[in-house]
Write a protein that binds this DNA or RNA. Sequence first.
DNA 1: GCCAATAGTTCGTAAGTTCGGAACTAAGGA
DNA 2: TCCTTAGTTCCGAACTTACGAACTATTGGC
Lengths: 118, 118
Amino acid sequence: MRPLTHPALGDVTVEGILHALADPVRVAIYARIAAAECALMCSEFLKLDARDIPKSTLSQHFKVLREAGLIRSERRGVELRNTTRCEEIESRFPGLLKSVLNAHRVQLAERAAAAGAA
Amino acid sequence: MRPLTHPALGDVTVEGILHALADPVRVAIYARIAAAECALMCSEFLKLDARDIPKSTLSQHFKVLREAGLIRSERRGVELRNTTRCEEIESRFPGLLKSVLNAHRVQLAERAAAAGAA
DNA sequence: GCCAATAGTTCGTAAGTTCGGAACTAAGGA
DNA sequence: TCCTTAGTTCCGAACTTACGAACTATTGGC
């Protein structure tokens, strides 16, 4: 197992961020980590919106988020403690994460409303 | 040749937008269309930042932008006139496109500065 | 009207990416 | 030491992407 790698802020790219957040599972994960008060472990997400995510897939999703520079993961014993790097990214790309998360929230609300109406 | 299809605003997704803009060629195209005063044709982009983009690849990129709901393409004779749908998208996902384009601009500026310093 | 030119699209294939199951590693108990 | 828990790696199948060649549609010249 190779050690966890996190890009320096200067190596974070807009493309990497957008690619990472262009996946429904990954935005959902990221949104929840961003909203949480404390660090969350990967296994928190094995069930996501009533859907089962296989462990290997989840591990890849975390890797993508980490390598995009969106989250920081620290090993704590057996677990990983995941937190966002949003302040850092905010300093370089102001407003970006806020508006992506907001758009994601808008879309969730619309879908919930549509499902409720049906 | 099937007719050009544009999704209704309600069918535009955040994932689709982010996926479309997660490609350097496509953001560059989108940024230029968004900044232009008038509609631009596809062939404007056969040379992009001193790089040649093959016609078939370009056509696919435009298709992705169109189907993500980011641009509107109208046939005018042999050509396509491409314009952005940014006001529409702004009404649904406020701030999203602005901050993505801004982040893209920041990154370009940084790269230009780094290239200048080297 | 016919031919050539121009602007984009489609098709097919090669290269790359993503998903997920099975087998793995690493740390912490019992 | 062995078991359990948390996550990673490997690898094949399914999917996506890039781009050349062949195509379609529209216009202008004759």
